[in-house]
Nucleic acid binder design. Structure first.
Length: 598
RNA sequence: UGCGGGGUAGAGCAGUGGUAGCUCGUCGGGCUCAUAACCCGGAGGUCCUUGGUUCGAAUCCAAGCCCCGCUACCA
C-alpha cells in the first residue's frame, strides 16, 4: 500500500441536470487530480454519489406525479451516463439512498450525540393542515410586512429585498395548494457549532498558508468575525434518513448534514463491494491520508466548517462503532480547493431559462476532450469565468488542434512514412536532442508542482508550452530537409520528437485522457494508461441502486509504479498508422450553439 | 444597506515597490513533415480617475467612479 489520496467530490443534487459550470467547478478538477495521483502510483480513491434526499427532490416529484425515489433514480442514471462519457474516474459513484449510507450517517449522528455535540430546541414553523405536514419556508407566500408586496416568500421579499421572519408574514398561504398554513411548534436537533468553534478555527489556521484565499475568507474569516452558532440538522420531512433516536422517526436528518457524510460512507461501500470491509480505514483513520475536497464556492461553509466540525465532534466514536479494537479519530480535510462559478456568454447560468451548456447535450455533438480542455484553461480557480462559444471554437482550433494535435500528427506521420512504422534507431543523440528531452523532463517537474498545488490552469498552460517547444525543435532541426541528405540525422530528430510526445502524452493524460490513450495506442503500446468505468446494480433492504466503479484492469496505472516521467522508447518498436487526435470545428457552430440558448 | 470579487494591449488573463508580461487574434516574413497546421519577427497599453507616500508605484495609502456576485431551509 502506498500513499493514500482521497479525492472527495461534491455530490450532485438529484433534481437537476449537470451543466458545464458544475463540471468545471468540481467534477473535472477532481478527475484531473485523481488521474495525476494514479500516475504517481498512489492509492487513489475518488468518491461521490447522488444527493438523493431533501426538498427539491420531493418538490419535483410532486410536480411530475412521481415518487422521490423515481426522480432521484432518473437523474442518477443520467449522471452516470455523463461521467462515463466524459471519463471521470470515480472509484465509486453511489447514492445517499442506500442502507450503507443510512447506517454510516446514523452512526455518525449518534457519535456526535453521545459526545455531547447535539442539542434540541423548539421553534415555530408553518404547518399545512390540508397536507398534514410542515412546509419549507419557500413554499409559503404572503404579504410582506415591510412593503406590502402580496407575493413575498416567507423567508424573503423579492420586491423590497428584505429578509423576512417567517412567522411575521401577513396572510400566509401554501404555494402548493393555496391553503392557509398555521404556526406550529416543532423540535429539532442542532449541531453545537459554538462548542466546536475553537477546534475548527485551529484546524483552519493550520492550513492557512496553502489553502486558497477565497476558501479561507469564507471559513476562518467568518469564524473570526461572526463566530458560529448551532444549526438545525433535522427536518420535518419524510424523504431522507430517519433520525436514529427513539420517538424521532417521523423526522429526517437534514440533507446538508447527511450528504457530506457520503464522503465517508462511499469509501465504506467501496470496501464492501471489493470484499475489503476494513479498507476504508486506509483513507479515513490513517493520518498519512491526503483528502482533497473538490467543490464549488456555494459549498465552502459546509466543507470548510461544518464537515470538519462533524469530524472533530465524532472523535474516535465512529471507528469504535465500526468495531475497531483500537479506535482512531477521522482524518480532517487536507485541502478544499473550491472553485468559483462559470457564467455563459456573459450571463449567469439558469436552468429554467435554458441558459446553460448541458453536459450530456454537449457530448451529443462534440468529443469529451475539447470540453475538458476548454473547461480547464477556463477553470474558475480564482474568480468567476465565462463560457463563450466563440472562444471555445477558437481555442479548440488554434490551441488544441494546432499546437498539440498537430504536433503528434506531424511527428507520427513523418515517422510512419519514412521508417515503415518502426521507431528509428537514433544512435548517439546530439546536444540539441538532449536539450529538448531535458526541457520535457523539467516540464514534468513544473507541471507536477502546479498539480500538487491544485493550479490546474497553470499546469495545462505549461503542458501546451512544452508542446510548442517540440514544434520549435522540429522547425529548427527540419527532418524533412535532413532526410534528403542525411537519413541518420533525420532519425535522431524523429526519435527525439517521438520520445518527447511519448512523454507529453503522460503529462496531458490527466487533462485529456481520451486523446492520450489514442496517442498511446498509436505509439504501439499494448496496455492502456488508465482503467475503465463499469456499473453494477446493488440491492439492499432499502432499495436497489446503480453504482459506477472504476476498474483499473491491467492498465499501466493499476500497479503502484510512478509513471510521471519520460520513459525510454525502444528503437525498432513498431507503431501504428496515426490519424488526427482532435477534429477542427467549423465556425458555424458558434452561431448554431448560441441559437440553442434561451 | 451590508459583505465579497474585479477594472492591465482587440479578447482572456499573469504580475503586490525597481526599465509592463503570457495565450489567442492582428500585420509582415520563413517552412512545407503536419488538420492552410508549424516557426520567426513587428505593431498594439495614460496598468479606471484624482491626490498622497517614496529616489522610484500597476504594485502601498486616501478619496471617488464603474462592473459583477452573495446577503435563500435552492446543501
Amino acid at each position: 500500500m502506498t500513499e493514500p489520496v482521497l479525492v472527495a467530490v461534491a455530490w450532485p443534487y438529484a433534481s437537476a441536470k449537470i451543466h458545464v459550470g458544475n463540471i468545471t467547478g468540481a467534477y473535472l478538477p477532481a478527475d484531473i487530480l485523481a488521474r495525476y495521483h494514479r500516475l504517481r502510483g498512489r492509492d487513489v480513491l475518488m468518491v461521490s454519489g447522488s444527493d438523493s434526499h431533501g426538498t427539491p427532490v420531493t418538490v419535483r416529484a410532486d410536480q411530475e406525479g412521481l415518487t422521490p425515489e423515481e426522480v432521484y433514480k432518473r437523474f442518477h442514471a443520467e449522471f452516470i451516463q455523463l461521467f462515463q462519457k466524459l471519463g471521470l474516474t470515480y472509484d465509486i459513484f453511489t447514492s445517499t439512498h442506500t442502507r450503507n449510507h443510512f447506517d454510516v450517517a446514523s452512526k455518525l449522528f449518534l457519535s456526535l450525540k453521545e459526545n455531547g455535540y447535539l442539542f434540541t430546541e423548539a421553534s415555530m414553523q408553518w404547518y399545512s393542515t390540508e397536507q398534514g405536514r410542515f412546509l419549507p419556508d419557500r413554499y409559503v407566500e404572503g404579504t410582506c410586512y415591510f412593503c406590502g408586496n402580496t407575493n413575498a416568500r416567507s423567508d424573503q421579499c423579492d420586491n423590497c429585498g428584505h429578509l423576512l421572519e417567517a412567522d411575521k408574514l401577513i396572510d400566509p398561504r401554501s404555494k402548493i395548494d393555496g391553503s392557509t398554513p398555521e404556526l406550529r411548534e416543532t423540535t429539532h436537533f442542532y449541531l453545537d457549532l459554538e462548542q466546536l468553534q475553537d477546534e475548527v478555527a485551529e484546524f483552519l489556521r493550520d492550513r492557512q498558508d496553502y489553502w486558497r484565499p477565497n476558501v479561507m475568507r469564507q471559513s476562518l474569516g467568518q469564524i473570526e468575525t461572526e463566530g458560529l452558532r448551532g444549526r438545525p440538522i433535522t427536518r420535518d420531512l419524510s424523504w431522507g434518513i430517519p433520525v436514529p433516536v427513539e420517538g424521532w422517526d417521523e423526522k429526517c436528518m437534514y440533507v446538508w448534514f447527511e450528504a457530506v457524510i457520503g464522503y465517508l460512507s462511499s469509501v465504506v461501500e467501496w470496501g464492501l463491494l471489493h470484499d475489503k470491509p476494513d479498507a476504508w480505514r486506509h483513507w479515513w483513520t490513517n493520518q498519512e491520508s491526503r483528502t482533497l475536497y473538490c467543490i464549488g464556492k456555494d459549498n465552502i461553509p459546509f466543507h470548510a466548517i461544518i464537515w470538519p466540525a462533524e469530524l472533530i465532534g465524532v472523535g474516535q466514536s465512529f471507528d469504535e462503532k465500526m468495531g475497531a479494537e483500537d479506535p482512531q479519530s477521522l482524518v480532517l480535510p487536507y485541502d478544499v480547493p473550491a472553485n468559483e462559478f462559470m457564467n455563459l456568454e456573459g450571463q449567469k447560468l439558469s436552468g429554467s431559462k435554458n441558459w446553460a451548456v448541458w453536459g450530456l447535450d454537449f457530448l451529443e455533438r462534440y468529443d469529451p476532450d475539447p470540453m475538458r480542455y476548454y473547461l480547464t484553461v477556463n477553470m474558475p480557480e480564482t474568480r468567476d469565468t465565462d463560457w463563450d462559444w466563440e472562444e471555445f471554437y477558437q481555442r479548440n482550433n488554434n490551441e488544441l488542434v494546432a499546437t498539440w494535435g498537430n504536433l503528434a500528427n506531424r511527428v507520427l506521420s513523418f515517422a510512419y512514412k519514412n521508417w515503415e512504422g518502426n521507431i528509428p534507431d537514433p544512435g548517439e543523440l546530439r546536444g540539441s536532442d538532449k536539450a529538448l528531452l531535458e526541457t520535457i523532463r523539467k516540464g514534468f517537474k513544473t507541471v507536477e508542482a502546479n498539480l500538487e498545488a491544485v493550479k490546474l490552469r497553470a499546469a495545462m498552460l505549461e503542458a501546451m508550452r512544452l508542446a510548442a517547444e517540440v514544434n520549435k525543435y522540429l522547425d529548427t532541426a527540419a527532418p524533412w530537409f535532413e532526410i534528403k541528405s542525411d537519413r541518420s540525422a533525420a532519425g535522431k530528430t524523429i526519435y527525439t520528437a517521438l520520445q518527447a510526445i511519448d512523454g507529453l502524452k503522460i503529462i496531458f493524460s490527466p487533462f485529456l485522457p481520451h486523446s492520450s490513450e489514442k496517442l498511446h495506442s498509436y505509439l504501439g503500446y499494448e496496455k492502456t494508461i488508465y482503467g475503465s468505468l463499469v456499473t453494477e446494480e446493488v440491492e439492499d433492504d432499502l432499495s436497489t441502486h446503480t453504482v459506477m466503479l472504476y476498474d483499473p484492469g491491467d492498465s499501466l496505472t493499476a500497479g503502484s509504479e510512478d509513471l510521471w516521467k519520460l520513459s525510454d522508447l525502444p528503437p525498432g518498436k513498431s507503431f501504428k498508422q496515426p490519424s488526427p487526435l482532435f477534429q477542427k470545428l467549423d465556425e458555424s457552430i458558434v452561431e448554431e450553439e448560441r441559437g440553442r440558448l434561451g
